[in-house]
Nucleic acid binder design. Structure first.
Length: 945
RNA sequence: GCUCGGAUGGUGGAAUGGUAGACACGAAGGACUUAAAAUCCUUUGGCUAUUGCAGCUGUGCGGGUUCAAGUCCCGCUCCGAGUACCA
């Protein structure tokens, strides 16, 4: 009897595959459960041990739910569009499709080896035209919709046109980039082209001039979540702000719903918090300022309306359109110089540069409350993209304004009683107001704030502003619209052409998918157009409704197609819906399929997608919900984040100027250089010296100074990467120990959510557990040997303890403790020499989600004809868990003195009596009568003397 | 700066307010073996005992609540993650 995991695992993987064991379809007789993993981007490096962590956890949960009688949808696919494949294509000329397909094959091979219960018949790939058909379709739906604030949902754009025709723009509450006030009459007067331009301002997918994150090295724009600390997430290249005409998604219209929806879903608090911060709701007021010497007006946003008496200057963002309007003649050259300098700086430089800079525009605004004239400045500490791109500066109570005021010698007015602003500003929102007109001494109708608490003063000022028509209460969100164009080849083409007026028109729905054309090279064109600009034979014939391979300038029915492609998150925003009905050529999802499967019950993936994918998906889902395509408003009901698996690097210590290596604990006597060594040559920190000598030619003659005949390596925790030689592929582990050991070990490593370094130091213990399990089944024979005898009480107890623990742990995603529970149970049963069928059969069912291959093998070895997948999860019977005797810890004045065993079910009074009359008690009682006795059933008896 | 986590043996980590350190690794000792591997047994937080069966101490630090605190409350220290000229 030997644990031949290679044979066992191969056998059952082939069996499951051949018998389509994990394929599911809608089944009204069973409750559904949808378990989803974030689908991987198939990179060239293949899967490493960090990837399967979440997959194993969700697979355990899927298998568990299946055994509990649920119809479980557990699909997998690939996020196949992405930058690395394109960059590889630029270098090698190989089409990204080829590399992507190759990588997918490798991923599939690796995944198959681990024994997941995916329904591969539902696989999707985002680069497959049959899939991106529906990405393009959704885009057109967004193009043809606007967001109505009254209905709080997306509505067809035709309804907006109708409203314009009847009442004009002013009374409507619709999400837009710029407010319009035209009347119904004025609307009707407008040309077709003008109307199109106005509608663009309202569409949910719109073409707009926006400030974008431009990364010149990558040659593309990036979304906010793709920029980290002013550098591109991919590659770490500098990013600058640039005004560009781009496709955008009006995500901001959904800000409030995205925020509110968080309360209805079961995600970790930290992830919800991250999204709340990203959405960044802030309540405040918009205040209108008039200029002293010109008719121009502008508004600012503030959360501290109460500080209006402390405004000593105004600041405009350098990119603000107001700069040009408000700059006085004599200051023009200085301001222009400043704005130019600011524009040249990248986002990162601006952040790094904490120096205070700015320029005076030479003009003055009028404080709407006091009537005083206040100077208007330009400075890059004010952002064009947030609020109105202009602020009222209150140096007394805002540290940034304070720094600016001190630098340019502007006055600082304290507004809170007792605060000291001689060294720094007082930013806290607390205290009593001063320095506004005194009650009784104020002019008629002026705003009196003195003596009020800050929150009262804010409320009063808002009210005052609204009454006097000087401003309005306003909620601002940090969440901005998503830029949706990428100047890249390897992405979904926009289903859009530009008509004779240069206006974008959607490709008719029945002509989708609009396929990605071939190009000769994947670089931008010489004229700076995106790579698709090289597709010369790629145009749209609007009369015949098809892609044509010709450019005929004289024929006005042949139009240019959009040359940008969609970003990475386009394909990943609704893939979970497509899994429900993946081969449907008529719709994204059939209504019946979606009614049955609904949203994702459990979503497993990394927390790094908090502000990207997980926001976009929620937005996309809400849009589809508004459009009546799907039935649930939130895509992912419960979300678990697996931690990151870091690399555990190993070092050898070379004695300087020699080829001799000294073991870790002996290195102190020498001058040594630590060198990274491939972790695959190290086991339990002991170096395989032969493998090391063969690793590289220069180590061929290496000498070792060992301890007890072993060379011990040093170690440290780093990111898993090729250059550190610490990448561990799951294949190696599967080859050496088997998939079941890998699965159990990854779970045993620690709590799922926690980031932890990968080390194989404990893997033997898990492997040993499986061997013990086999020993229990086989005894000393070569075939499975189970007895049909009735189990004894202690055997039943051991099993039911396990059922209770494992069921509880799986429900709470505490997989590491359930693996421990299996080990305890097997140790107990081994000690009892128990191989009784009534015990080991349920045990195998419990184990099957964790180690499906060996469980299946033994299940069949016992004579079962069906697969273990069809078994039923065992129920825990509490009556087997009852203790005969209960151990009480008896303590005196809180100190435990002795343990005492009493029969289960002993009455409280009898327990008290027994504790006092116990022979050991006399020592502490010392003849005294106790003041108080506390009996905690099953636990402790505390006697207070 | 702000927000959210975390701190328990040599290591990974267990502990609904109720005997802290489950389980596993590693280490030490032993059995089997010509030997090794494999397997099995014993010990393993620290200190004091160990011809004394036990005692003391102990969950980052300082307080508090409680009969009882790793767990709850207050105040620190350190570490990690996210986010940031957001007005």
């Amino acid at each position: 009897m030997e644990y031949n995991f290679r044979e066992i695992e191969k056998k059952w993987q082939e069996y499951w595959n051949a018998h389509k064991v994990y394929q599911v379809k809608e089944d009204e007789s069973k409750p559904k459960y949808y378990v989803l993993d974030m689908f991987p981007y198939p990179s060239g490096a293949g899967l490493h041990v960090g990837h399967p962590l979440g997959y194993i956890a969700s697979d355990i949960y899927s298998r568990y739910k299946r055994l509990c009688g649920f119809n479980v949808l557990h699909p997998m696919g690939y996020d196949a569009y992405g930058l690395p494949a394109e960059q590889y294509a630029i270098q090698t000329g190989q089409h990204p499709y080829i590399t992507t397909r190759k990588n997918i094959e490798r991923y599939r091979e690796q995944l198959d080896k681990i024994g997941f219960s995916f329904d591969w018949s539902r696989e999707v790939q985002t680069c497959d035209p049959a899939y991106y058909h529906w990405t393009q379709w959704a885009f057109i739906q967004m193009f043809n919709s606007y967001y109505c604030y009254d209905a709080q949902q997306a509505r067809p754009i035709e309804e907006l046109i109708e409203a314009f025709e009847q009442v004009g723009a002013k009374p409507l509450h619709a999400a837009c980039s710029e407010e319009y006030t035209f009347t119904a009459g004025e609307w009707k007067e407008k040309s077709v082209c003008e109307k199109q331009k106005i509608l663009m301002n309202y569409r949910i997918a719109y073409l707009g001039d926006t400030l974008v994150n431009w990364c010149s090295t990558l040659g593309t724009v990036l979304a906010n979540d793709e920029v980290i600390n002013g550098l591109s997430e991919r590659g770490g290249y500098p990013v600058e702000q640039k005004m560009m005409r781009q496709w955008c998604l009006r995500v901001s219209a959904y800000a409030q719903r995205l925020l509110d929806g968080l309360d209805s879903i079961d995600w970790t608090e930290s992830l919800k918090e991250t999204q709340r911060n990203w959405i960044g709701r802030s309540e405040g007021a918009e205040m209108r300022f008039k200029m002293k010497d010109s008719p121009v007006e502008f508004t600012v946003f503030t959360t501290r309306a109460d500080t209006v008496y402390g405004v000593t200057f105004m600041v405009l963002a350098p990119e603000s359109e107001l700069v040009d309007l408000l700059t006085a003649k004599e200051q023009r050259s200085e301001v222009e110089k400043y704005v130019e300098a600011a524009k040249k700086k990248t986002e990162r430089e601006r952040m790094a540069d904490k120096k205070v800079t700015g320029a005076f525009t030479g003009s003055y605004a009028v404080n709407p409350v006091t009537g005083e004239a206040i100077p208007v400045w330009v400075s890059d500490y004010v952002l064009a993209g947030y609020g109105t791109g202009a602020i009222m500066a209150v140096p007394g109570h805002d540290s940034r304004d304070y720094a600016f005021a001190k630098h340019f010698n502007l006055p600082v007015i304290p507004l809170i009683e007792g605060c000291d602003v001689s060294q720094e500003s007082f930013d806290a929102k607390e205290g009593k107001l001063i320095n506004s007109p005194q009650k009784g001494k104020e002019k008629e109708g002026s705003l009196v704030l003195n003596g009020l608490e800050v929150y009262q003063a804010i409320a009063k000022t808002k009210l005052y502003l609204e009454e006097k028509g000087l401003g309005k209460v306003k909620v601002n969100y940090r969440l901005r619209d998503a830029t949706f164009s990428r100047q890249r080849y390897w992405g979904e083409p926009f289903p859009v052409y530009y008509d004779a007026n240069g206006m974008p028109q959607p490709v008719p729905l029945d002509k989708l998918p609009l396929k990605l054309p071939d190009v000769d090279t994947f670089l931008p064109t010489e004229t700076g157009e995106p790579p698709l600009g090289r597709a010369e034979k790629w145009a749209w014939d609007s009369v015949n409704g098809q892609v044509v391979e010709t450019w005929r300038i004289d024929n006005i029915t042949i139009f240019a197609l959009e040359r940008n492609t969609m970003p990475g998150f386009a394909g990943s925003s609704a893939y979970y819906i497509r899994y429900e009905n993946p081969r449907n050529g008529k719709a994204l999802v059939d209504k019946k399929a979606n009614d049955y499967w609904g949203n994702v019950d459990l979503y497993a993936g990394g927390a790094e997608h908090a502000t990207g994918h997980l926001i976009y998906s929620r937005f996309w889902n809400k849009f589809l919900y508004d459009s009546g395509v799907i039935k649930d408003e939130e895509p992912f009901r419960k979300l678990i984040n697996q931690g990151m698996i870091q690399g555990r690097s190993n070092f050898v210590y070379r004695i300087n100027n020699s080829n001799t290596f000294v073991s870790l604990n002996l290195k102190n006597g020498y001058e040594v250089t630590p060198l990274h060594v491939d972790v695959n040559m190290v086991h339990n920190d002991i170096l395989d010296r032969e493998a090391f000598r063969n690793w590289r030619p220069e180590y061929k003659t290496a000498e070792f100074i060992t301890e007890d005949g072993k060379y011990i390596c040093g170690w440290t925790v780093e990111k898993m990467s090729k250059s550190m030689f610490n990448v561990v592929n799951p294949d190696n582990i599967v080859e050496k120990y088997g998939a079941d050991t890998l699965r159990l070990y990854e779970m045993f490593l620690g709590p799922l959510e926690q980031s932890k370094p990968w080390d194989t130091n404990g893997i033997d213990g898990v492997h040993r557990f499986l061997k013990k399990l086999l020993a229990l089944f086989f005894g000393h024979t070569d075939s499975v040997n189970v007895s049909t005898d009735k189990p004894a009480a202690d055997e039943l107890k051991s099993l039911h303890k396990l059922i209770k623990k494992v069921t509880f742990d799986i429900e709470h995603f505490s997989f590491n403790t359930s693996v421990s529970a299996f080990m305890i149970c097997i140790n107990e049963l081994t000690a009892l020499k128990c191989n009784k069928r009534e015990i080991v059969e349920p045990l195998l069912i419990l184990l099957s989600p964790f180690a499906p291959h060996i469980a299946e093998e033994l299940w069949h070895g016992m004579g079962n004809k069906t697969t273990i997948v069809e078994a039923q999860w065992p129920r825990c019977k509490e009556e087997y868990l009852k203790e005969d005797v209960i151990t009480y810890a008896v303590s005196f004045n809180g100190k435990t003195r002795f343990n005492m065993e009493l029969p289960a079910g002993t009455a409280r009074q009898d327990a008290e009596k027994a504790a006092l009359t116990h022979q050991a008690a006399a020592k502490w009682l010392d003849g005294k009568t106790p003041k108080k006795i506390i009996v905690v059933p099953n636990k402790i008896i505390n006697i207070v003397i």
